[in-house]
């Protein structure tokens, strides 16, 4: 598989279908129907390994709980061995002391593997900008989806999971996605004007209008935010071409 990986993203996989299954769509491009099928299957049966370290874990519990119900997305069953999991949730701050453990867990996972950075700390270190913490797990392992928030709201987590599922379904690797904010349209206008200048009475008036019922209903908001969120709208941060550190053990 090494030659394919080395040859860049846009080159179609030359591997035979059976080999491609092992490689797990590493070649950044989907060609065969079989891979499409596998992607579809994978998308709805993500086996997750929650690497829960900090406060975000509380929100993770809530997402797994009855109200937000992660199980609806087929990502219910936690595997408590990295070797059986294909989705690594990194939930919370990773300290320098923890970093070797995180790296090792990632390396123990079999291909194809996906990483979801849950929360600001996992994404970039957050406001723990000091001697003890790793400024983002992407310094240690590649990340597929970043979910910002401190902690992210469960809705944002579900958004992130859906983004990841889309990505898995298309068989894409590399290229990190960031969950975009769900904006209340009336507030989005305010934000766009720039926070520094748009303060004072104008802003208060806008906020007042928002609270006094000129705002769209919840249903409309949801529809809008879903319509406004195709995959193209997310930022592609980096192309990760790093070769893997271990061989396939098939």
């Amino acid at each position: 598989m090494a030659d394919i990986r080395g040859s860049g993203n846009a080159i179609p996989s030359k591997a035979t279908p059976s080999k491609a299954t092992m490689g797990g769509g590493d070649a950044g491009f989907v060609t065969t129907r079989l891979e499409e099928l596998l992607g579809w299957a994978r998308k709805y049966s993500l086996f997750q390994y929650p690497f829960v370290t900090a406060c975000c874990g509380m929100e993770f519990m809530a997402v797994a709980g009855p109200r937000y119900d992660l199980a609806r997305f087929g990502a219910e069953a936690p595997r408590f061995s990295p070797r059986q999991a294909d989705l690594l949730w990194v939930v919370g701050t990773v300290s320098q002391r923890q970093a070797p453990a995180l790296r090792r867990i990632y390396e123990q996972m079999g291909d194809p593997k996906y990483v979801l950075a849950f929360g600001t700390c996992a994404s970039c270190g957050g406001f723990y900008d000091n001697y003890a913490t790793v400024p983002g797990i992407d310094k240690i392992i590649p990340v597929d989806v970043y979910v910002p928030g401190c902690p992210p709201r469960p809705e944002a987590v579900l958004d992130g999971l859906m983004l990841l599922m889309e990505k898995v379904g298309q068989g894409k690797r590399g290229g990190a996605l960031v969950v975009p904010p769900r904006e209340v349209p009336a507030m989005a206008k305010i934000r766009k004007k720039g926070t520094a200048v748009f303060f004072g009475q104008e802003r208060m008036a806008a906020e007042k209008a928002l609270t006094e019922g000129e705002a769209p209903s919840v249903g409309e908001l949801l529809e809008q935010s879903l319509a406004e969120r195709p995959v193209e709208s997310v930022t592609i941060l980096s192309r990760d071409g790093e070769p893997k550190k271990h061989d396939d053990h098939h």
Binding site: Q96, R97, A99, P100, R103, C124, G125, F127, D129, N130, Y131, A132, T133, V134, P135, G136, D138, K139, I140, I141, P142, L237, S238, D240, E242
Partner: peptide, 25 residues
């Protein structure tokens, strides 16, 4: 006198573009 931002990583950071912290961090 220990500078707060002096990290002493145990794992070599990956060498990939676009993962640096941006202001205000």
């Amino acid at each position: 006198d220990y500078p707060i931002e002096r990290t002493q990583p145990l794992v070599q950071y990956r060498d990939v573009d676009g993962i640096d912290k941006l202001p205000p961090f």
